[in-house]
Amino acid sequence: MNSKKYEYFDVTADIGIRVWATNINEIFENAAMVVTSLMIDSSEIGNTVVKELYIEGNDTASLLINWITELLIVRDSEGILFSSFKVKVSKNKKSLQAKCQGDYFKGNNLEMDIKAITYSLFKLEKLNTKYYLQFVLDI
């Protein structure tokens, strides 16, 4: 269990995700990875596009929501998905800087149509030395 980075859980019409990491940056990186991997096999994404993103939130939960939402905005508006993420969350945990590497995806054959990340069943907490995150995607 301790080495697990993420797992899915069942929600009637949507999909729930649990993420573990050793630090807050990694929680944001792993969350982005798992959301991407629901849409496409990450090994199929190239690394010709590099994008630096700056995201803000009212608190850490909304920062996480805005981070994943930004990835959906880039997906829909520019047709880009990322395969690697380097995230640096600010000290007050209300903003982050990220360097994302990826590529344009072609065709209409993504594995899953993710509409949005929701606050439903949302949890972000520190458990001893680990961080735990849980959220539901609207699909």
């Binding site: 849409m39 995806f105 065709g107 209409n108 054959n109 993504l110």
Partner: peptide
């Protein structure tokens, strides 16, 4: 009719 995931 364009359809599919990520359809434009």
């Amino acid at each position: 009719v364009p359809s599919g995931l990520g359809s434009q």
